[in-house]
């Protein structure tokens, strides 16, 4: 980790909702340009952590630095374009795939050329013919791909992926895994990916955070999952997730 610049750094971050401590004293970094996976049981606070990076939530206390700049120094709109996020449910607005792809530009009062949209769809492994298809006709895997392509329209330097393969079949999951690596290589984006699947963390992820009950229990190169130091993590790994 010492060799890498942090793209995101947390310093003693706490987050509480309705008197429940969701995140407790989070300190650590996501290395720049690499694929970091967040693993841990449900309710560990992983999704909340991603929302803090994207500015959808703010911590109760502590500091978050994005590219060495305090998160509060960013304008929220600027921050969310810099730190893109693909949501777990991959929500689509009503209409065609192109309408969905155009959304980030429309929000800025700009127009997305069709060829740019087609290029991004091609990047995520969907052909140009999908552009004018209704978003309702898409399968789960295709929705996730469109969701990622839509996020890429803003050219984010950091891309947050919230359990995007959790409801997909095996072949779609494999396609998304390949896509994550491809985007990381092509755009040089820092990727932070929540997954319950330890195989994904080992095979696709390069760096890993293990989170449990709102705390970061262990971090390091993904190989740590082969031989974790922490007892809780050892038990978690043996149980392969949940």
């Amino acid at each position: 980790m010492k060799d890498y610049k942090p793209a995101v750094h947390f310093h003693q971050v706490h987050y509480t909702i309705e008197n429940t401590k969701i995140l407790k004293n989070i300190t650590g970094s996501f290395p720049e340009g690499r694929i970091t996976t967040l693993v841990g049981p449900s309710g560990a606070g992983k999704s909340t952590l991603l929302k803090l990076c994207n500015g959808l939530l703010s911590p109760d206390s502590g500091e978050i630095f994005i590219k060495n700049k305090g998160i509060t120094a960013y304008d929220p709109v600027e921050l969310r374009r810099l730190v893109g996020m693909a949501l777990q449910s991959a929500p689509m607005v009503e209409g065609t795939v192109f309408k969905n792809m155009s959304l980030p530009m429309k929000l800025q009062g700009k127009h997305l050329p069709e060829e740019v949209a087609a290029g991004l769809l091609d990047d995520v492994g969907l052909g140009e013919e999908y552009l004018h298809r209704s978003s309702k006709e898409l399968s789960g895997g295709q929705r996730q791909k469109v969701s990622i392509a839509r996020t890429l329209v803003n050219r984010p330097q950091i891309l947050l992926l919230d359990e995007i393969t959790s409801s997909l079949d095996r072949s779609s999951t494999q396609e998304i895994e390949e896509l994550i690596v491809k985007i990381n290589r092509k755009y040089g984006a820092t990727m932070v990916w929540i997954t319950h699947n330890l195989r994904q963390a080992l095979e696709v992820g390069e760096y890993t955070w293990v989170m449990m009950e709102g705390e970061v229990v262990e971090t390091g190169e993904s190989e740590l999952l082969h031989n974790p130091e922490n007892e809780k993590v050892q038990r978690f790994v043996k149980g392969d997730g949940e």
């Binding site: 959808l56 893109g84 996020m85 929500p91």
Partner: peptide
């Protein structure tokens, strides 16, 4: 809420 969060996450304003 999902739709609202989506637009905010893409850099939209509360009004959008």
């Amino acid at each position: 809420q999902d739709e609202t969060e989506l637009i905010l996450s893409l850099g939209g304003t509360p009004k959008q």
